[in-house]
């Protein structure tokens, strides 16, 4: 169980990015966090990963307080961040350095097969397409078998087709070990395709605005009425989250945002 206990983050320059986020994520749950820019989504993810430490509250995973990167927590960033000096296979095995060579090679091979990149094992990262590189990044984070996988807008730099493809790959890989997924996105459809639960955040400072359960049967049909229903709920929540922000800190926020302009 991943628990956030009144997590807050105030940057040294006085900006309050996060304010008292409390949250419980069950093992194997897929939580998607969505919200406008500046609502602290990434800050929250970095606090969970241990890359940054919260200034208030704490992050607890199975009774352990997280203050630094932890072996049970993996993270995937918006960019693949592959190490350009390692071949694809060595990038995937980067987190397995302490394992015996045979085991490492076997796990890397299986992982690359799972994402259809067996033939790219000996290739340098610069020779991969954007979608391929992000697939490598996903398996690199997954081969050490983390209990929690954090994803910070991992598909936002990709085109729509590649994005849908990678969402399928992600769900497929998730089904193997069912780690807890916490994913940040600003793509509403992506959130509904993936999530068990959608958390809408509101900005200035970042807080939880609403939580929407998303228990559509999988695989999810983007054209179905149920999908559309959830989508409307999420969009409505996003709009409201911004309107209210405009009221609370009048003067700072410009005129109320238009419906489609929430990002």
């Amino acid at each position: 169980m991943l628990v956030l206990d009144r997590v807050g983050k105030t940057y040294p320059n006085g900006v309050r990015a996060l304010d008292g986020i409390s949250l419980e994520v069950a093992p194997g749950e897929i939580l998607v966090v969505i919200g406008g820019s500046g609502c602290g989504k990434s800050t929250m993810l970095r606090a969970i990963s241990g890359l940054d430490t919260p200034t208030q509250g704490r992050v607890v995973l199975d009774g352990t307080v997280i203050t630094a990167p932890h072996e049970k927590i993996g993270i995937i960033f918006q960019e693949p961040r592959l190490l350009p000096w390692l071949r694809v296979a060595d990038n995937v095995g980067f987190g397995l350095e302490d394992r015996p060579k045979a085991e490492r090679q076997a796990r890397v091979k299986t992982a690359l097969t799972r994402v259809g990149l067996t033939d790219k094992a000996r290739v340098w990262p610069r020779e991969l397409s954007g979608g391929q590189a992000q697939r490598v990044a996903i398996v690199r984070a997954l081969v050490p078998r983390p209990q929690v996988l954090l994803l910070d807008e991992p598909f936002s730099a990709l085109d729509a087709f590649t994005r849908a493809d990678l969402q399928d790959h992600l769900l497929d890989l998730w089904a193997d070990l069912e780690p807890t997924l916490v994913m940040v996105t600003h793509d509403v459809e992506e959130a509904i395709v993936l999530a068990d639960r959608i958390m809408v955040m509101r900005p200035h400072p970042g807080r939880v605005y609403d939580e929407i359960d998303c228990d559509l049967p999988r695989p999810r049909d983007r054209q179905s009425a149920a999908f559309d229903f959830v989508k409307r709920r999420v969009l409505a929540a996003l709009d409201r989250s911004l309107d209210r922000a405009a009221v609370t800190i009048d003067g700072e926020t410009k005129a109320a945002h238009g419906g489609g302009m929430w990002w």
Partner: peptide
């Protein structure tokens, strides 16, 4: 720094 962060993630 982003690459260094990858190193940090892998402790």
């Amino acid at each position: 720094r982003k690459i260094v962060e990858v190193g940090r993630v892998f402790r």
